[in-house]
Nucleic acid binder design. Sequence first.
DNA 1: TTTAATATGTGTAAAAAATACACATCAATG
DNA 2: CATTGATGTGTATTTTTTACACATATTAAA
Lengths: 247, 247
Amino acid sequence: MRNISQRIGRSASGELVKDPTRLVETYPKVPLTVDCVLFGFEENVLKVLLIRSDLQVFDGLWSLLGDNVLDNEELDDAANRILKERTGMSDIYLEQVRSFSHPARHPGGRVITVAYCSLINIQHHQLKILDHELHWHDVQSLTQMAFDHFEILTYCNQWLQKRIQEHPLGFNLLPEKFSMRELQNLYEAILNQQLDRRNFRKKFASMGLLIDVNEIENDVPHRPGKLYKFNFEKYEKNKRNWIGIDF
Amino acid sequence: MRNISQRIGRSASGELVKDPTRLVETYPKVPLTVDCVLFGFEENVLKVLLIRSDLQVFDGLWSLLGDNVLDNEELDDAANRILKERTGMSDIYLEQVRSFSHPARHPGGRVITVAYCSLINIQHHQLKILDHELHWHDVQSLTQMAFDHFEILTYCNQWLQKRIQEHPLGFNLLPEKFSMRELQNLYEAILNQQLDRRNFRKKFASMGLLIDVNEIENDVPHRPGKLYKFNFEKYEKNKRNWIGIDF
DNA sequence: TTTAATATGTGTAAAAAATACACATCAATG
DNA sequence: CATTGATGTGTATTTTTTACACATATTAAA
């Protein structure tokens, strides 16, 4: 093991490094991938888009949609590329969640991966299905996956549960015009928890971020609900920076 | 550019991969570092531990404490190693925040870094000062740093502001026994905001997580305050999983 | 056309939490 | 012993959260 001075890139004599390129060439290199946790919402159930693992050791198991990071490609770009390749969609909510680096997480050797979360309206996209290996899975029914992907999925699911309570991500999973019931179903699916209908509506009403479009549902076998749009402009203007110690 | 099937590691014929090691060998490799944002607290000011950059292009600028990730080293381990090397401390709060991957973020070429945050009690450790290049900096007074480290610091600072309101991190920055004033000073320094004294105390009192140790300050030039310990055991038992849509 | 089924739309009372705000007390200093 | 400077405490007000029930609109079936 080199000593500290060398490892942090400082010469022992204390003089400045003039050629950073040569310095970087001395760094160990690691295979790096991005794994996308693509969440969707269908039939009031939270889904995740998975592919059957192509590794024999994981025969029959499902895995997240991942790929190598290309040379000089930003991680965000890699994630967007995967999303585009699989769903045909761009300009979609997509966010880095965290890295996973256990040395034995990949059976082929050391591979570090960065997990990204995305929320996709299942209706709005055409899956780029190369074969029958791509599938929307119920999140709740999964128990085992290839690699450490179940751990990653679990982490991202919890991350999403927290995130959706503080940011209006959910609207990406809904049609542009949606009913209160659809919105509540979405929150209940993601939070995996029943919510009080009146208080839920009251909460969103008090935020003043829903626009009543003066239309009603037309394909339901019961009294139709009113339709709303989310007021993204108003939200962006008034983003709060909250103070509230709470643990 | 290879086609999708190849890039995701699947053979064109659709058969399973039997040798994952050979597969991984085909992945591009990237130099990977960890940068630690070591926050401290002294004289009621939030500080960050920085080192003077050793690159000539950044002459005079300060940078975070970073290092390469070693072969088969977990990212968490790399961060802990850096922390240990610099401060002599282990078993310290340390958490991954996010990765930064702009292709031009390092003048020596493509280097991806993973940022970690740590909170250190400045009194409790001995800086491993090799020379005079290591320094506790006021966070508020920084405007420019080497690499993208100012961006990383800003991100971590915001991350910390949010985190400390939901998790009891702050106690790592205080002595084991502390006064309410010290606790409030800490929150005010991190949140960069004045807080109402009575409401602050009421808030912490209502959480029931502070243990009155029946001692008082003895080195202050005014009426001494009572000292408290944080009840970590009780906190661990009662960790809340909160529901509260709010944006 | 009537009835049953089902989901929508709405309000209020009670409890809990957040906020604003003032004065007596204690210890040290001169 | 008076001054200085911080501690310790309570209450009234407002806001937010929670629990909870009934009339209404539409479809589908009788």
